[in-house]
Design a protein around this nucleic acid. Sequence first.
DNA 1: TAGATTGTTAATCGATTAACAATC
DNA 2: TAGATTGTTAATCGATTAACAATC
Lengths: 205, 205
Amino acid sequence: MTETQIPDIVVSRLPIYLRALTRLQQEGQHITSSGELGRRLGISSAQIRKDLSHFGEFGKQGTGYQIEFLIKQLRQILKVDHEWSVALVGAGDLGSALARYNGFRNRGFRIELIFDNDPAKIGRELSGYIVQDAALLGTLIPQRGIRLAMIAVPAEAAQFVADELVKAGIKGILSYAPININVPEGVQVQYIDPVVHLQRMTFYC
Amino acid sequence: MTETQIPDIVVSRLPIYLRALTRLQQEGQHITSSGELGRRLGISSAQIRKDLSHFGEFGKQGTGYQIEFLIKQLRQILKVDHEWSVALVGAGDLGSALARYNGFRNRGFRIELIFDNDPAKIGRELSGYIVQDAALLGTLIPQRGIRLAMIAVPAEAAQFVADELVKAGIKGILSYAPININVPEGVQVQYIDPVVHLQRMTFYC
DNA sequence: TAGATTGTTAATCGATTAACAATC
DNA sequence: TAGATTGTTAATCGATTAACAATC
């Protein structure tokens, strides 16, 4: 209907739908239904249909959804129908693992700049790129017009790094540091902290 | 009041509170308020008080919360007042980074078993432990009574590994594989997929 | 005491679900 | 056609927030 604000919680589920659809496609399927998708994800079929209805009509009554078509639509909605360059700050164990991870490419992202402030790491090759001096972050990021970054530095450095990234024009930060980061309005932050997930499970154990 | 079911969404916030409180403590603070905590986390003070009220009364009117005391209480609630042993399956780049990560220890977890099915990796030392043959998973995990596991294997292997883990008695799985996993009732699963987080941000870019 | 902040209630807000006409 | 499944509405359910008495 009218172009209304999409609830965050709806947006947050779209990548999950996209992932499951891609999986179905890999398994050779061409068509699916909200029922099947819901069963796979542990989500009600009504919720899936409701979520999608915020963006348009993508299915056919009686049939379901053309997987290829729905994937294309979701990619467009999430803006991952083209590749995003990502800057990575921190080339330690975790940063290196991220740099080498080849699951980014086919899902819309490419790590294109890697920074560290350790002289022993600067200048080294990592997954096809040279580790850059973190001091150059403010120059190189705007130069390449990069708008997404991942932070894989110790908690103590995370807020400082985030501030520098924001100054450099970064609009979205995925932080692996186990700490809350403050950013100005208009900058997105997402967190990954394995301990938080583990603690969510021990409660139920 | 009466011992009622705690909403999942409340439980999911407790580790965040615990993390922020620990941070405040590290900064040398002894007392805080729902207002201060909320400001740090971008959460309303009412929500924090409401969440905590599910478990008891931990504050003092006019004063706020004794940080040390509240940390102790939250640790107890989340059952991380003692250390949990964790099994790790997959000793690739990501698995190795997880094995070496020293942020688990002081927050209630210790990786105590590491598995891989690559003969080149089995028998190797990793972060003080010997990488075990994944085929021994069903023996070693019950032997040690381990109930939590992390999966850092390719998507194709994740469901199989999860099945084996469940058979071995695992009750909580933290999966890094970009795929949905099906487990029986009573087994917890949490997911970490950086691409999902990145895609949640590009929508707003 | 005066000021601050808790714990809790009730009101509001928003998300999920059930149900079904439309239709492939 | 008969069967299946969509998109959407309305009802339900649950979570968040505003407000305030209690009290430190």
